[in-house]
Design a binder for these strands. Sequence first.
DNA 1: TGAATAGTGTCTGTGAGACAATATTAT
DNA 2: ATAATATTGTCTCACAGACACTATTCA
Lengths: 276, 276
Amino acid sequence: MKEYKNEKEFLEDYDVSQFAQLSMTADILVVSVSDQENENYRKTSKKMMSILLVKRRGYPFKNKWCLPGGFLNPAKETLDDCAMRVLKNETNLSNIYLEQLYTFDDLKRDPRTRVVSTSYVALIDKNKLTEIINENASWFDIVSYEEKDDIVTIALNNGDAQIDFSIKKVLRDKTTDLHSFSTLDNKYLAFDHPIVILSGLERIRNKIQYTDIVFNMMPEYFTLGELQQVFEVIMGKKLLAPAFRRIIANKVEKTNLMQTGGGHRPSALFKYKKRN
Amino acid sequence: MKEYKNEKEFLEDYDVSQFAQLSMTADILVVSVSDQENENYRKTSKKMMSILLVKRRGYPFKNKWCLPGGFLNPAKETLDDCAMRVLKNETNLSNIYLEQLYTFDDLKRDPRTRVVSTSYVALIDKNKLTEIINENASWFDIVSYEEKDDIVTIALNNGDAQIDFSIKKVLRDKTTDLHSFSTLDNKYLAFDHPIVILSGLERIRNKIQYTDIVFNMMPEYFTLGELQQVFEVIMGKKLLAPAFRRIIANKVEKTNLMQTGGGHRPSALFKYKKRN
DNA sequence: TGAATAGTGTCTGTGAGACAATATTAT
DNA sequence: ATAATATTGTCTCACAGACACTATTCA
């Protein structure tokens, strides 16, 4: 091995190709909350989580749905940059909540060649989504999300197509909450994206309890009933209103605006209040 | 663009080199708890967290310390495999608690070329460490770990050398606990490893509170006093014994072994009890 | 004997779960 | 008037923080 006098000399002589290389992508689970229309004038509209999927127009996985994503340009951008670029392309939004989720790298996750994917979770308030998005993109409501005996079944629907898939969770270590995921049923999603979706949903479900990320999915003004519904749909269970109000009381600021027109008592509109 | 009849035909024609490529490494923060010797025969030995570092013998960062790590072989191994391989080389241990931490990918984190690093946290019980390790590797005690005004200062010591560094934490988003880290002072550590170390320590500090990962750093039999000390050193604060005992009571099983010889009342030895 | 740790008992305050009760709207 | 949601009050139970107290060892 050649001896170098200093680091500068070493770097000038360095052969970039000496280590085997691979491609990377950033894939993004874009999550929002949508309202369902409503028959009864009295009832409030039901809220659902929804995620953004893109229909693949070319191989591999032609005509299957996948998460928005793109290849990393290693010379110029970081994975964060790459994720923001993809998000901008799909939603025309920037300044969005974006968090690295996990790096998935099964040898066979991409049939072309070795592609390592670093996944992200993005949260957006659908009311801000005015611009048209990619014509191959579509919002899917999470119409079902159930776990039983460590098997998770999820159903997505965009009003046109339904996507069902199921995943087996295997506890990786007796001391922790970490699981390995393996896809059991999946006809409609490309790559390992069922697993990415589930990981992201679990991350959100987890973090909503000890952070304020929920407000990234809320409009500026909202009622406590709406906020509670978002919590309920993300956590997958009903909450009691008095307890809920106590818990979020100090994160929220009452305005003197009211929401009327609901066939029932009007409710005060609140804003997110920073700082605990 | 050429039209393909099916995915098989597409894959046979696929040009691997069409996307720019890069190298990846897996870097591992190996964490354990060590005992300090003791002057007073009555006092129990003080516990400290310790981490494994390797002295670099070549460029770049020649003679600086870094986390154990290695380049990924994209054709044959996953990042998890790679991390386990590195761990086996350094500690000769397998079957160790290993958890993916974060993927770091600053453009300039490696002066040679673009190298994306997926970092891991490994927890080990030092009592199992009988085999000799890499002659360039050394255990460093975390002799200081303080946070003030979003600046974290850490000092490491292996009995021979001292490593001091400090990192600034910047809240990335008002709704969450996520921070960006930037290194302020660092003379002795290679790459972006100050940030990896801090991220890993925060992950452990966080997870010790809602999982059982602490038992990965404990021997089979331990006293509740020892266990409490490990919690205290990881959480960076003192705990009250009665409360601590109540909290871990159902995770732990009393044996009929006793630990004597301490110049004070002997204590019962406990074992980790799985299942909540 | 005394320093040091082991181990238990109990008071108190906080906060979540549960449920009851009242308020107010549109049709 | 009624269905539906909004909002508040209050009881109870679980549990963590705090502190007092007892137990037991070895130099």
